[in-house]
Design a protein around this nucleic acid. Structure first.
Lengths: 226, 226
DNA sequence: GCTTATTCGTGAAAAATCTCACGTTATTTT
DNA sequence: AAAATAACGTGAGATTTTTCACGAATAAGC
């Protein structure tokens, strides 16, 4: 049974899985804000700037099914995605670095929507240690192993300056962390069995700049195309 | 000539372009931190967790070429990527929202590496207006059009709470913004000719959770596979 | 209840991407 | 200077992903 469940996770195209995250976010929004009951593949497509066919194909890998003329039932789809993403089981994470970025992350309210909770935030600045960020007290780095054990922490977010990121990563690996959520732009060198997810900001901007550049190129084509 | 240059941009596979951003970050790091002269496709591959073949294939779309036994010349490759990404021309951006996230972004030192500069940061909280974030003074929202005109701003980063994100987006669109860099987890509804890049944090975490779940599944297979 | 209009579901074709295998080439060694 | 070696470069094949086209299904209108 447990094996069956997990096989299910594996049978999506990787690209579909990526989009499922977007659908999850969008559907959460539709349900909470608009209290929408049904949604069309075409509406989803327009919001996410993909094609309706793509949306339907993606959903075809799920158990949920749509109704002609009405579309998909938002709550049903969301339930299935919640189950898929394990949103109901809460994962404790820790944040290393209590600068603006670390604090912003600690204050983020959306974690509960995806089954996560910030167990603690750490910094090595004596000035900061002991002060509060929301409901959390900033702790010294030496407390990391204790907190990791106590809350069964597997994921750590690195929010320290680039110059310290590798060092912090090494320390976390030493403590047996399973995944690093890296908010520094440093590309980290860690053992292969530790998951690394880079949240490097600059990549988004490079993408935008490129699209803007392309756009001005396209402009010259518009005469012919449109 | 200008057209030639731009055609060049268009002839990469999209997937390659995405990876070029990672190479850019990694090479910048190698040059600045380690002062490395040459780098092997295999080294790059290991750091980025892809295959050396993929790296070489990607580079084959560039003019730069590697040398057997030595690998690629870091500075040469980086020059070409800088040119490709337009890193030398500085793009002025504005930040809407001076909470922790907005401040973190405003303080980010890496923008110069990718040809960007924060022209101004805005908030609607009278308490915050007039106070400083690094070298920038927080301005009221009504100043946005003036700043946009003066600094030829095409890109705006939205760092406001989810509940205000759509409203801010509408306003920016009204002012003629060309691209929105969205740090809220709200999926925005804006005209199709406005570029939107979602930097929604939760997606990264969903990915990590999924990989952790997969990992424990894989564990049971390891007996057979390895 | 029958008809019509609309939207889903999905194989099959097309396109994009990745992997493989091996020839090529420059450095290093002898 | 020749041989050996290590790493690049790349076409061809395999795989993955997207698009297309159309049948199926169902809600709404008559």
């Amino acid at each position: 049974m447990s094996l069956e469940e997990r096989k299910e996770i594996l049978r999506f195209p990787k690209a579909t899985f990526e989009r499922l995250k977007s659908y999850h976010a969008l559907l959460t929004q539709l349900l909470l804000e608009e209290k929408r009951e049904y949604v069309l593949s075409e509406e989803i497509a327009e919001m996410l700037r993909i094609t309706p066919e793509q949306v339907r194909k993606d959903f075809s890998y799920l158990r949920s099914t749509g109704k002609p003329k009405l579309g998909y039932k938002v709550s049903e789809l969301l339930d299935e995605l919640d189950e898929l993403f394990g949103t109901r089981e809460t994962e404790n994470i820790i944040i290393i670095g209590a600068g603006h970025l670390g604090k912003a992350l600690a204050n983020y309210k959306g974690f509960k929507n995806i089954g996560a909770r910030v167990a603690a935030i750490f910094d090595n600045d004596p000035q900061k240690i002991g002060t509060m960020v929301g409901e959390l007290m900033i702790l010294p780095l030496k407390d990391i192993p204790r907190v990791m054990r106590r809350f069964r922490v597997r994921i750590a977010a690195i929010c320290v300056p680039e110059s310290a990121a590798q060092e912090v990563a090494d320390m976390l690996v030493g403590y047996g962390i399973r995944a690093i959520w890296n908010f520094s732009s440093r590309i980290l060198d860690v053992p292969n069995d530790v998951i690394v997810r880079n949240e490097d900001i600059t990549r988004g901007l490079l993408g935008i700049k490129h699209m803007l550049a392309q756009e001005s190129t396209e402009a010259s084509k518009q005469v012919e195309i449109r």
